[in-house]
Design a protein around this nucleic acid. Structure first.
Length: 663
DNA sequence: CTAGGGTTAG
């Protein structure tokens, strides 16, 4: 079991997103015809000399050539042996022809042929800017940003390397594959190498920003650059900006850009409206949302399924459930409610606003109507049931989901099921979920760790909880202080002080503000567990957060069994923070030195230091010292120091009131 | 067709 909790694989590869819009935009035969027609029918500059006379002849000599080219292209497209097909085509095809085939290979997803052809083109010096742009674009589509970067790095021709379309396509490749950070870095490099970025460059990078968690600020930086360079704005840029505003809840800015865009003469399309509507949905502003829909209709844009579904979200989030249900009915009539989305929105909001029974009813209705479902509404219901602590029902539904859909392809699904099983204490199913997660190759996120730690802790599997905290920390997830602190305490109680200390350190170095009481808690655990040196380090760094009682308890424990070489250091540090070491503690320390006669220098050092600070030993200790002084071979020295201590002590007596002042 | 964007559910 332990092994399982630790066996998460973190491949770091973002989940695949399907990109299916390529083929529809792409028409091989059109592009083929265009490219082949160009050299044959475009007016040649020297046409006067041969045009009328040779037109018939020209047709007859070129036609076979045109056919030869087409054949050669087809030959490469369909070749099983690409190399020999390319050899046969040599001298017949031009760069543009190779580019056509390159695009064809991509469209038909023949990635190996695609790469092979591109390499061949490089080797035979048959490439232009377009070849590279195409190559990088398709490297983006085939999710191969690393390769793209390698190829880009190896471009020797500066003209190509700094050509905007080449740069843009490389940046686009990175952005598409979730590497916005490196795209931004590369962009800076390109600029300092001499790239003159254009609107497409910025639009590409802005798209990347929309995928970053804190991308809004970066987006604004890029926007400044666009302004500084007077590149102007177009409706694509506005589209991206509105999407960024929507996902960052920037209502005012979204409204501003929307207006600005209209002022500059760009008519907003369905998507621009949709993004703005999203902002209103987040804000639960149904009035503005309704106005926007009306505005949209008045300019002749019919709200589609997505827009109407978003409107339903506005109503539902705003608690307007009657209106929501009316709109749902309308969506049903329009045929826009064939899938579960609208139902899911309504169910979620009903449940979140305390109307679980109504939510259940909509869920049941939906299932009766045989609405197409991928299991999302199950997820929503399971979460809702867990929140309401209807744990048995939640588990039932989780099992139903598993048997009905058996879909585990994202972390939210796995977390939801995991939570349902954890809440029920169904260990077997929990472990099954973890195994699934591993098999599917999904990285646990913050929630996964949190659910598991809570569960292991509840089940008193503190060591597993500890291992999971360790794992969470190493994956750079912010630790939950409250949860980790409780695990830390339990680890202490269960006799695992060093694990507890390790949890403490993870919290301590997690760069955020912590409860002051944390330090005292770990100190108590360390003292009880005999990890006195670690305890010493805690007291040194956080003495202000530690109560006098705990401090004293620590000091006693340390004098009694801590590292004898550190006794004086501990006392000095204690003195620095408190200035009131009790005679009893000194007594324990000195008794300790009696057991270790070879440490007599340390003892003498301590006695002198005590005198200097105005401390004196109590009567018992004093007698003990004098009686045993000969054992240290320093009878006279000890007597002298003790005499000094008394003097010092009587001198300092009057100052004892001011000892609260630290340092 | 040398490069860029967009909306809904957990």
């Amino acid at each position: 079991m332990e092994a399982m909790a630790l066996s998460f694989t973190f491949s770091g590869i973002p989940p695949l997103r399907t990109t299916s819009n390529l083929s529809s935009k792409f028409c091989i035969s059109c592009s083929l015809a265009k490219t082949l027609d160009k050299p044959l029918f475009s007016a040649p500059t020297n046409s006067t000399s041969n045009a009328p006379l040779n037109s018939a002849q020209s047709n007859s000599t070129h036609k076979p050539f045109k056919i030869a080219r087409r054949d050669a292209i087809d030959g490469i497209k369909t070749a099983s042996d690409l190399e020999s097909a390319l050899q046969r085509a040599e001298g017949i095809l031009q760069v543009e022809d190779y580019n056509i085939v390159l695009r064809y290979f991509c469209e038909s997803k023949k990635w190996s042929h695609f790469s092979q052809l591109f390499e061949w083109m490089q080797a035979h010096d048959e490439f232009n800017v377009g070849s590279y742009s195409t190559y990088f674009k398709y490297m983006g589509l085939s999710r191969n940003p690393v390769k793209a970067l390698k190829v880009y790095d190896n471009i020797k021709d500066v003209e190509i390397k700094l050509h905007p379309s080449v740069c843009n396509s490389v940046l686009g490749c990175l952005v598409r594959n979730g590497r916005t950070e490196s795209a931004l870095k590369l962009f800076d490099q390109m600029k300092s190498d001499g790239l003159l970025p254009n609107l497409v460059t910025y639009s590409t990078l802005l798209t990347g920003c929309s995928k970053l968690k804190n991308g809004y600020a970066t987006a604004m930086e890029l926007l400044k650059e666009i302004k500084a360079q007077n590149l102007g704005m177009d409706s694509v840029i506005y589209g991206t900006l509105l999407a960024i505003c929507a996902s960052n809840n920037r209502r005012e800015e979204a409204e501003l850009y929307f207006q600005q865009m209209k002022n500059e003469g760009h008519s907003p399309n369905l998507f621009h409206y949709s993004s703005l509507l999203n902002v209103y949905a987040e804000d639960r502003d149904h009035t503005k949302a309704q106005m926007l829909i009306n505005d949209m209709k008045s300019v002749g844009i019919a709200p589609n399924k997505v827009v109407l579904t978003t409107l339903l979200k506005v109503y539902a989030r705003g608690g307007l459930f009657e209106k929501s249900k009316e709109l749902l009915a309308e969506l049903e009539t329009l045929g826009y409610a064939q899938d579960e989305i609208a139902y899911a929105i309504l169910i979620d909001n009903l449940a979140k606003q305390g109307k679980l029974d109504e939510a259940k009813k909509i869920f049941a209705d939906m299932n009766e109507k045989c609405v197409k479902s991928d299991g999302y509404s199950h997820m929503i219901m399971i979460s809702a049931l867990c929140r309401s602590r209807l744990l048995e029902e939640a588990k039932q539904l989780a099992k139903e989901y598993e048997s009905k859909y058996a879909k585990y392809d994202d972390v939210v699904i796995l977390n939801t099921l995991l939570r349902a099983y954890c809440n029920n204490g169904d260990m077997e199913s929990v472990m099954q979920m973890l195994k699934r997660m591993d098999e599917v190759g999904i990285s646990p996120d913050w929630n996964t760790f949190h659910i598991l730690i809570k569960y292991f802790s509840k089940e008193k599997l503190y060591h597993l909880a500890y291992k999971t905290i360790e794992d969470m920390n190493s994956k750079k997830h912010q630790l939950d202080e409250e949860l980790c602190t409780s695990v830390m305490i339990e680890l202490g109680k269960a006799g695992y002080p060093s694990e507890a200390f390790s949890v403490y350190n993870m919290l301590r170095y997690s760069q955020r503000k912590l409860q002051k009481s944390l330090h005292e808690k770990i100190l108590q655990i360390l003292v009880a567990g005999g990890l006195l040196k670690d305890a010493y380090l805690v007291t040194k760094d956080f003495s202000e957060s530690i109560s006098d009682r705990s401090m004293e308890k620590f000091a006693r424990a340390f004098m009694k069994s801590g590292n004898v070489n550190l006794i004086n250091d501990v006392l000095k540090s204690y003195h620095q923070s408190r200035k009131k070491i009790s005679p009893e503690i000194f007594n324990i320390a000195i008794t300790r030195y009696f057991q270790r006669r070879e440490k007599k220098e340390l003892l003498l050092h301590l006695l002198r230091w005590m005198a200097g600070q105005g401390y004196c030993v109590d009567a018992t200790t004093r007698n003990l010292l004098l009686k045993n002084a000969h054992l240290f071979g320093s009878k006279q020295i000890i007597a002298d120091i003790l005499a000094n201590q008394q003097v010092a002590n009587s001198k300092l007596n009057g100052r004892s009131k001011s000892r609260h002042n630290k340092k």
